[in-house]
Simulated assay, not measured.
Amino acid sequence: MKKIVILFFVLHSCFSYSQCLKFLMEDLAINGKEFKALVNENSGFKAWQVLAEHAPSLRTDLNELNLVSKNLEAIEKAGGYTKWKGLYKARDWKSIQHIANKFPTEEMPLDGQLWGIAEIESGYIKQMASKGNTFNDVDFVITTNGELKIGKKHHFLGNASSVEAAGTIKTVNGKLKKISNSSGHYFPTVDETNKFPEIFRQLGIDTKGASLEIKYLDDAGNLKTQTKFITE
């Protein structure tokens, strides 16, 4: 603990000194020995600083801390964590599932639109050209190479191919508020939809507090909806 405090005063360069110190005290109080041992090392503490500033929802994630601590030089060369993560994600995306398009041979819709491929910063979706970053139940797919495409018509966004996730999202100023599996072409199952939060987090998106809406057919073929809140 003493070494961690010394490292903080010697190496601190966070966006806000007081907020950085507050985060550090909170994280040390609620996390275990493995976390403390990692941030007690110079590289581990620098990694924690990077995440505290640029991806606070991931700052206690041991896998991300280890990854960042081993790539500090590459992060600096790339121009920061967000730019480096985009490059790293593209070459190291870990596929979780493939959801097949249920109507792959159907013609592409004439009103299909790609508003953009989302860029993520500090857990938030950045503004997307003229569309901003506040969306209310807008269509999305996450491709099998880790691109979050936002727009209209899942068949068009997914190019009729398999995807990791598909449905609609609600965001307010880039903060994820709701994920739904509402998609006629992909109609993700309950099990597939339950993996959506993990997939969004792998993109670097803060999912905590967002609702997960799951549409499914019961044994009688009736459409039902189940909603729960994501706790991490």
Rank of each mutant, 00 (worst) to 15 (best):
K102D: 09
F103S: 14
F103G: 09
P104M: 05
E106I: 07
E106P: 08
E107W: 07
E107Y: 07
P109V: 06
P109N: 07
L110I: 08
L110C: 06
L110G: 11
D111Q: 08
D111I: 06
G112F: 04
Q113H: 12
W115H: 09
W115G: 07
G116V: 06
G116W: 06
I117A: 08
A118N: 05
E119C: 08
E119I: 05
E119A: 09
E119R: 10
E119N: 13
I120D: 08
E121D: 13
S122G: 12
S122D: 10
G123Q: 00
Y124T: 01
I125T: 00
I125E: 00
Q127A: 12
M128F: 05
A129F: 12
K131P: 08
K131E: 11
G132A: 12
G132H: 06
N133G: 10
T134I: 04
T134Q: 01
T134N: 01
F135C: 06
F135D: 02
N136E: 15
N136R: 15
V138I: 14
D139S: 13
V141C: 03
I142Q: 04
T144G: 05
N145G: 09
N145K: 15
N145E: 14
G146P: 07
E147D: 07
L148C: 03
L148I: 02
K149S: 08
I150S: 01
I150K: 00
K152Q: 14
K153E: 15
H154Q: 14
H155L: 11
L157N: 09
N159R: 12
N159H: 11
A160P: 09
S161F: 11
S161L: 15
S161Q: 15
S162V: 10
S162Q: 15
V163G: 00
V163T: 03
V163Q: 00
E164I: 00
E164K: 01
A165P: 12
T168Y: 12
T168A: 12
T168M: 12
K170L: 07
T171L: 11
V172F: 14
N173H: 09
N173P: 07
G174V: 03
G174Y: 03
K175S: 06
K175Q: 09
K177M: 12
K178C: 04
K178P: 00
S180H: 05
S180Q: 06
N181K: 05
S182A: 14
G184N: 13
H185N: 12
Y186R: 01
Y186S: 01
F187E: 09
F187I: 12
P188Q: 02
T189S: 11
T189G: 03
T189Q: 02
V190E: 14
D191F: 01
E192K: 00
K195L: 13
F196N: 00
P197N: 08
E198P: 01
E198N: 04
F200L: 07
F200P: 02
F200E: 04
F200C: 06
R201H: 10
R201G: 08
Q202I: 04
Q202Y: 04
Q202R: 05
L203P: 03
L203F: 02
G204R: 03
K208H: 08
G209R: 03
G209C: 15
L212G: 03
E213Q: 11
I214R: 00
I214C: 03
I214V: 14
K215C: 13
K215A: 13
K215G: 13
Y216V: 02
Y216R: 04
